[in-house]
Design a protein around this nucleic acid. Sequence first.
DNA 1: CAGCTGACAGATATTGAAATCTGTCAGCCG
DNA 2: CGGCTGACAGATTTCAATATCTGTCAGCTG
Lengths: 195, 195
Amino acid sequence: MAPTSETLTAERILEATEEVLRRHGPAKATVVDVARALGVSHGSVYRHFRTKAALREAVTKRWLDRTSEALSGIAAADRDAESRLRDWLAALFDAKRRKAGDDPELFATYSVLTAESGTAVGEHLADLTAQLTRIIEAGTADGTFAAADPATAAGAVFQATVRFHDPCHAREWERPAAEAEFAAVVDLIVRGLRA
Amino acid sequence: MAPTSETLTAERILEATEEVLRRHGPAKATVVDVARALGVSHGSVYRHFRTKAALREAVTKRWLDRTSEALSGIAAADRDAESRLRDWLAALFDAKRRKAGDDPELFATYSVLTAESGTAVGEHLADLTAQLTRIIEAGTADGTFAAADPATAAGAVFQATVRFHDPCHAREWERPAAEAEFAAVVDLIVRGLRA
DNA sequence: CAGCTGACAGATATTGAAATCTGTCAGCCG
DNA sequence: CGGCTGACAGATTTCAATATCTGTCAGCTG
């Protein structure tokens, strides 16, 4: 807000961009707005990010990475594979549902950003399925699960729960039945994985 | 096109509306266009459908019903439950993917219509899960499947395959990996249902 | 001289006036 | 008399003029 005199860094630009996106929404947030918030000319912003699209993608990546990190703790926990899988899926659903419910406008903003993102979303999804793969590998090793190919199984689990983590289904997460529907899908999946 | 002199019926209006939607798309299709195509005044259309929204919903319902009918044959076929389930899911995916691939504009049109629809889509989904429920009930009866509550299981199966029939995932149906991903999800689900 | 500025060209978005559309209804026609 | 028409009010959409934005770069400044 008040033009700080610290050196202009990519990090500061990303913070200002998040703030501008939060205030103006994805359609009206401009590079000029970001520069104004930082008290610099918009030319300076282009010194750190080649295009507006690159700036938006960097903000998106930061946001996605925060989710990945929160979940990786559960994936790496020291518990039986089935509990970890259930907790991980529940945590993913919960995080998404909370974000969508608490601040719908901000969530809509990031939904637009992820839709226009080039590689950031793909990498994020690859990261999440890698976490799932680790859980299923552990379960296969200790005899809980029987998966010929843990990576394929992880992909199937991820896609079978798409309704509970993909933004395009956000509208349905608020319905009272959502919790029971989620439980039914997870039960079906876990039974499908068991040895 | 050429103003026919047959009596104006709801059916004829629906056909003309489909044609206008196909030509102009959902954003530009107007009631006046439909009336013009039929060679009548737009006031006459309002004699058969109270609002433009009701007219659009009726067209949507017709379109959805055609899908339901095509699938109900498979659901009622005289074969073992697991084959019927696999065929039914494959037929659903195939029908959707073909529609989206063959005429993307028309598919986009109907995606808009279903998104704005009030009850028609809900009824269609209820119809499809009812078909699934019948298959799973049959499988439970003959010992193939073990489902405490076939209706709940059917809902879970339907939602676990959402990625392969919900229009909001249409973009992903064209990717080469889609077929293998579908197979993996169906295998996981079928294993989860088995006794 | 490294980093920032601000003017610029072409692309995109906003605005408000004019055109079109939705939904109604009094009256016409067969 | 039942069904259709066409004019109408208010809402929505279109269109073109205007303003703003993106991305570049020559030159300023500390």
